[in-house]
Simulated scan of single mutants.
Amino acid sequence: MNFGSDNQSGVSPRILDALVAASSGTAAPYGNDTWTQQAEQAIARVFDHDVKAFFVATGTAANCLALSALAQPWNAILCHAQAHLISDESTAPEFFTGGARLLPIATDSGKITPAALRATLKRLPDARPHSVKPSALSLAQATENGLVYTPAELKALSEVAHEHGLHVHMDGARFANAVAALGCTPAEMTVHAGIDVLSFGASKDGALAAEAVVFFTPALAEGFDYRRKRAGQLVSKGRLFGAQFNAWLQDDHWLELAGQANHAAQVLAATLQAHADIRLAWPVQANEVFVVMPKALLERLLAAGVQCYDWYPDSLPASMPLGADEVPVRFVTAWSSSDQQLDAFAAVLGR
């Protein structure tokens, strides 16, 4: 009954088979192999657009290296106040950008809105060289609260950002879950919506350790090969990235895996909502479920072997105040969340 995080799940058998196949024999190093070249072509087909793709091992590296291409040390990067980037990446964004500042945008909706973005940009002083200059907007898809931006919402935000001279980055650690949830095309959610660079995450969706920084605006990728090398993310056996992405993207396997995780989240949410002492905090739109429950109930669930996490009280909407004995809790489903796990959880909760 592990609902701690989708990054705790194992590897899809199809991807594992591809890794084993790619592990035999010899191949050119540093991404100059056939698997990596085919993977970049596969990504271009998925987004129906010419791209520059660079493979790295972690989501932190993907996000922060991508932002380093968009921000100078004296710049600012705007993101939601609860974004993973600002709450769970330590000081990696500042490290990789050489000191660029993260500026949070707080909204009660759990997502950045065009009005909130405009208001934030308007408030920032413009007194060169004394004031920080914004250069990028980072949007998480899905968000840290499990919400999904629609293509129309993304396009509206990108238009405001570009109007003010900002580039737009997307933290796509759960991009697959968002695409599967909305049923739109990957292009509609990125290049057609004005996204300049995507951190395309496979690790939470069935891969072992595989992330890609995908540039839809090629000029922004200038010098990125040096950035990746300097960060220690140029892996000699790059075919292990390429093999994973090829298997992940082939026949929409990535969307199949994400769809399984999303479905499990809906089942889990229904089980939780049926309990009289549990309140749903946010709509369940991808593969995360956020609830409020009594602390004693959480303790009993943990003692019974359920794995989940208490969450940040300030992540809740203002309309949901916490009682003295209540705690926010996050549940995350994965591609491997089984009916047996869901049934076992329902039985535990029912007791």
Rank of each mutant, 00 (worst) to 15 (best):
L139K: 10
S135Y: 06
R123D: 14
Q141Y: 00
H130T: 14
D108W: 00
A83R: 07
P125C: 07
L137D: 10
K122D: 15
N145H: 10
H130C: 09
S131C: 07
P125S: 10
A115N: 11
D108T: 04
P125F: 01
R118V: 06
L85Q: 11
P104A: 13
A100L: 07
A116K: 08
S87H: 10
T97G: 02
L85E: 11
I112H: 02
T120G: 03
L102C: 02
D126E: 10
A115E: 15
N145E: 14
T97A: 05
Q82W: 02
S109W: 01
P125M: 04
G98Q: 12
T97N: 06
A142Q: 11
L121C: 04
G99W: 03
A92R: 13
L85I: 14
E144K: 09
K122T: 15
E89D: 04
A140M: 08
S138P: 00
D88R: 11
L137K: 04
H84D: 14
A119K: 07
A81E: 13
K133Q: 15
S109Y: 01
A119W: 01
L121R: 03
P134T: 07
P125T: 09
S90V: 04
A100W: 00
G110A: 09
R123K: 12
A100T: 07
I112A: 09
G98M: 13
D88H: 11
T120D: 05
T107R: 03
L102K: 03
A119C: 03
P104H: 06
A119E: 14
I86N: 02
L147I: 08
S87T: 15
E144G: 08
I86R: 01
A92V: 02
A83D: 15
H84G: 14
A140F: 00
L102P: 00
E144H: 05
A116S: 14
A83I: 10
L137Q: 09
A106I: 05
T97W: 02
L124I: 14
S109G: 12
P104V: 12
P125K: 09
G98F: 03
D108S: 04
L103S: 05
R101K: 12
A116R: 08
L124C: 05
F96P: 00
S131A: 13
N145D: 10
P104L: 08
R101V: 10
A115C: 06
T107L: 01
R128A: 11
A127N: 15
L139R: 09
S87N: 15
T97C: 01
S131K: 07
R128Q: 12
A119R: 09
P93H: 06
Q82I: 06
F95L: 14
G146I: 08
S90M: 05
E94Q: 13
S109H: 07
A81C: 07
T91I: 11
D108V: 02
P129A: 03
P134S: 05
K122H: 11
H130R: 14
K133I: 13
L121P: 04
T97S: 08
G99D: 08
K133V: 14
P129Q: 07
N145R: 14
G99N: 09
